Simulated scan of single mutants.
Amino acid sequence: MIKSMTGFGRGDSQVGDKCFQVELKSVNHRYMDVSIKLPKKFTYLEESIRKVIKSNIQRGRIEAYITYESIGESDINVAVDMPLAKEYLKALLRIEEELSIETDVTTSVIARFPDVIKIEKKEENEDEIWQCLQEALNNALNQLVIMRQEEGDKLQVDLLKRLNKTRDFVAQIKDRSPIIVQEYRQKLIERIKEILDEEFSLDDNRVAAEVALFADKSNITEEIVRLYSHINQFSNTLQEDDAIGRKLDFLLQEMNREANTIGSKANDLIIANLVINIKSEFEKMREQVQNIE
């Protein structure tokens, strides 16, 4: 089963008061490229996320967007250093007493002094965090893989259809090939008679030698055999359960090369038109192959 490199998946998960949402988007890429955007405090999990993605996908550019929300208590602690606050208060009262001035000592005044109030982050359970994130990530990956497989099924149907059309064109070329030499011999004789006196005696040996030379130069049997072989390889590769995009692209290059050779050697208008049809199908197939994992 082939897979497309285009897809999207979203996954959510909640463990305790922790909620993660993961969105994955994949597009065409020659190799495997993973881009991850997540809250800064979870950057230590980036490599683990990358490994999970790569274990499910072999090729393409994957963009992962991860958001986090805590629906319970805040993950911030506000701590008060009471001994320090008392010392500040003693100092203020002493100033009031010794300088005989009235002061308005309030809680807000003392709270403004350095280090009286401290903001601290609560320690997180890293295993619990990863468990929650991994579940959301796996849910998103499942959706993404399913979408890529569904798109891959459509690509496979289209490629097989075009491959069958190509086989038909090659079969027509194979049937046409032997006729080319016969037509060349007839045209050669007619041309000679047209130029020379019709009563001029033709040298059958010279004509046969000329026709044999033409037949040798225009022989496309090997190219047809190789093209059939590549077509069969392409068809068999479509049934493999692996990343086959680059292999298919290589086979298309070889198929296109054989088609070009057939067109240049055959020296025949009908075959040239059939080659144009074949190359048109190859071009459409190449566009599809660019999107296969």
Score class of each variant (00 low, 15 high):
3 K>V: 08
4 S>D: 09
5 M>V: 01
5 M>L: 02
10 R>N: 07
18 K>R: 13
23 E>F: 07
26 S>R: 06
27 V>F: 03
32 M>P: 02
34 V>Q: 06
36 I>Y: 02
47 E>P: 05
52 V>C: 07
53 I>H: 04
57 I>C: 03
62 I>E: 04
68 Y>W: 11
68 Y>D: 02
69 E>Q: 15
81 D>N: 15
82 M>Y: 13
83 P>Y: 00
83 P>Q: 03
87 E>I: 09
100 S>K: 15
107 T>F: 12
108 S>N: 14
109 V>Y: 05
124 E>H: 04
134 Q>S: 13
142 N>G: 03
148 R>M: 04
156 Q>F: 04
166 T>W: 03
169 F>E: 00
174 K>W: 02
179 I>P: 04
180 I>L: 12
191 R>G: 15
193 K>A: 05
198 E>Q: 15
202 L>C: 03
208 A>C: 09
211 V>L: 10
221 T>Q: 15
221 T>D: 15
223 E>H: 06
228 Y>N: 15
229 S>N: 10
229 S>F: 06
242 D>V: 08
243 A>S: 15
244 I>P: 03
247 K>Q: 14
253 Q>T: 10
256 N>P: 03
260 N>G: 06
263 G>M: 09
270 I>R: 10
272 A>Q: 13
274 L>D: 04
287 E>F: 11
290 Q>K: 11
